[in-house]
Every structure is written in structure tokens, then in C-alpha cells.
């Protein structure tokens, strides 16, 4: 029996400190420039069963990753967090913001992921699978901000299917050692199964990151006709659904290993107890030859495949969000409050 695997979208979570930093930058550096700016976002394990998976931006989002000179501060991920590469498009007026070429920008980001998969960049750095774009209009006079997030996920030609042969459970004990180490974003695993008449219990042992061990491990599995087992750090905490970072990873695997048809995925959740981690058995679609071909033909142009991932408002519509920080930024209001 199969059914379509559904992924839980990210919710954007912009820390107040980010807006402060953006305001400062706009005043001091950007001024009227509308050039795109690289950002660093991060996500971590959901601290609670009942929270959305968050994609977070903090005050340090503007810092760079590879700082060589000592005068500049380097971006440091919060512990147990994972990187998402962002691009900021900040507009000077509301109208510019409204009329920004949103579809093109979203497609550009999708295409970068696609290119990184195909040119081997992902092999060296899987974090490049996680990208987002952020469109903003910062009304710094009134401390008001308009913004839209797009977090692209490339679409396979057919939705990814889940299959179940026999109920499987996770040996939680075997995950205990995971919480004491820094786990890679995506990794491969060795499994040990204990069969009983009704269920299979699986224990896990970390082999290494996809960057280090992925190629060797997956090829070995394919040669020996085994179903490989991979894992990722999952910001989602729902009992049946994985979070967004799995999507592009599966696309990557199905492009890189076209012979790979079945795979098992551990959605590792590291919040306190690891007991709500889940194990998925998936059938990968062939990445649609037509898509690959189409892509090659139009290589010079924009991304012509399909991707989704605009952040929706509470009505499920794609619309900008708005935040006003007058109560914490406006000097007059602050003066009022701290008599």
C-alpha cells in the first residue's frame, strides 16, 4: 500500500533583532541600493510537539560565513541548528516592493538549487539544498516592515510515495548517543533490525555525513540491492510528516542516483527526548526525464521546472506579512515607557 508523503512547511520567524539590524544597515550601508544581499538563516529541532518548524533570522543574519580578515565577525550558527542560505531583496518604496519580479526571484533560487545538485556543489555541502528568499520593504521612519518569504522546494514529476510492508518501530535507546554529538544536517546510517512476529524494531548507528560517506554508502547499497537508510535533522515534530528540508534532499538523491528506487529515512528530532523521531519508507520517483531534458534545453534561461514554497498567510493565500516595531524602536514610545 502506498500513499503520498506530505511535508510540513516552514514558518518564518524573524527575530526583532533582525529588523533592528536591517534598519541600521539601511541607514549606514545600503542607503538606496536595492542589490541583493546574502543572508544566513537557521532552523533547529522543534522545542515542543506543538510548535511549527521555524526558519529563523536573527541579528547576525548579515554576517558572512567565510571571513578571512580579522576585523569582520564571522557568522556562527546557534548550537544544534542548521544553515539555510538566504537572499534578501530590500526595496526602497512600497511600490517597488509590490512590483518586484517575485516569480523570477523565486525561480532564480530554485534554479540555484538545481544547478548545485547537477554541478556537484551539493556533494560537498548539503546545506546548499536549503535556500530562501526574503523580500522586504523597510519603512524605517515608522519602524514598519513588509516582507515575504519564499522557501523553494523542487517538485519531482510524481509525488513521493510512502510504502509500508510491516509496522516498524524505532529503538529509542540507539538514538541516545545522537543527542550528545553534533549531527550533520544529512547523514547515512547503519541499521540493525530485530524481528518479532508483529513488528520490526530498528536500531541506528551513524556512519557519517552525506558529504563524507554518502557516495560510497549509497553505491554499495545499490550494488548489493539493499534499501539504503539515510537521516536528516528534522525541524518538524508531527507524528506522520517530515519537515521541509527533506524535500530537496530527496530530489538530490533521485537525480544523483537514478537507480535508487526505494529508501528509508530517519527523521531525527533532537528535542530533549528523541522519542518522536520517525522512520519513513519511501519510493522515489524517477526525476522525470522530461524535466531534466527541458532543463538542459533551456539552460541559459530561467528555471523552467516546478517548485513551490511561498509562505502563506493564515488564510492560505500568498501575501506579504507586516510587522510594526514602534513600541520597541520608536524613541518617543520608549521614553514614555521608561519614565
Amino acid at each position: 500500500m502506498t500513499n503520498t508523503l506530505q511535508f510540513k512547511e516552514f514558518s518564518s520567524f524573524v527575530n526583532i533583532s533582525f529588523w533592528h539590524e536591517l534598519s541600521n544597515k539601511k541607514l549606514d550601508e545600503l542607503k538606496l541600493s536595492e542589490e541583493s544581499i546574502p543572508l544566513n538563516g537557521h532552523y533547529t529541532f522543534s522545542p515542543s510537539q506543538q510548535l511549527d518548524p521555524f526558519l529563523c533570522l536573527e541579528f547576525n543574519a548579515f554576517l558572512r560565513n567565510n571571513v578571512t580578515n580579522s576585523t569582520e565577525n564571522q557568522y556562527v550558527l546557534p548550537p544544534r541548528s542548521y544553515l539555510s542560505h538566504g537572499t534578501l531583496y530590500n526595496y526602497n518604496t512600497v511600490d517597488d516592493f509590490k512590483q518586484s519580479p517575485k516569480i523570477k526571484l523565486f525561480n532564480d533560487a530554485s534554479k540555484r538549487i538545481w544547478n548545485d545538485i547537477n554541478n556537484g556543489n551539493i556533494d560537498k555541502d548539503t546545506s546548499l539544498l536549503n535556500r530562501f528568499i526574503l523580500l522586504t520593504y523597510a519603512d524605517i521612519k515608522n519602524h514598519q516592515f513588509y516582507y515575504m518569504f519564499g522557501i523553494p522546494a523542487l517538485l519531482p514529476s510524481q509525488p513521493i510515495q510512502q510504502f509500508t510492508e510491516k509496522p516498524e518501530s524505532i529503538n529509542i535507546e540507539s538514538l541516545k548517543s545522537f543527542s550528545n554529538q553534533i549531527l550533520p544536517q544529512y547523514f547515512c546510517l547503519k541499521q540493525q533490525q530485530q524481528e518479532s512476529s508483529t513488528t520490526t524494531t530498528t536500531s541506528f548507528e551513524l556512519i557519517g555525513s552525506i558529504e563524507e560517506k554518502g557516495n560510497q554508502y549509497l553505491n554499495e547499497c545499490l550494488e548489493n540491492d539493499l534499501i539504503p537508510l539515510v537521516g536528516f535533522c528534522d525541524p518538524c515534530s508531527l507524528p506522520l510528516n517530515p519537515g521541509w528540508p527533506l524535500r530537496n534532499f530527496l530530489i538530490y538523491l533521485s537525480i544523483k542516483y537514478p537507480m535508487l528506487k526505494k529508501i528509508k529515512v530517519l527523521c531525527y528530532r533532537g528535542n530533549g527526548s528523541t522519542s518522536n523521531s520517525i522512520l519513513l519508507s519511501l519510493e522515489l520517483p524517477s526525476m522525470g526525464e522530461q524535466l531534466i531534458k527541458k532543463q538542459q534545453e533551456e539552460d541559459a534561461g530561467e528555471w523552467s521546472g516546478k517548485s513551490v514554497g511561498w509562505e502563506k498567510d493564515s488564510n492560505g493565500k500568498i501575501a506579504p506579512r507586516f510587522v510594526s516595531l514602534a513600541s520597541t524602536m520608536d524613541p518617543l514610545k520608549l521614553a514614555e515607557q521608561s519614565v
Partner: peptide
């Protein structure tokens, strides 16, 4: 202009 592909693989409350 932004009409997103209908995607059965998205779980959302809406």
C-alpha cells in the same frame, strides 16, 4: 501573478 502549483505533497492546515 504568483499562483503556486497545486502540490499534494504539502501539508498545511489550509
Amino acid at each position: 501573478n504568483i499562483i503556486e502549483e497545486e502540490d499534494p505533497a504539502v501539508l498545511s492546515k489550509n
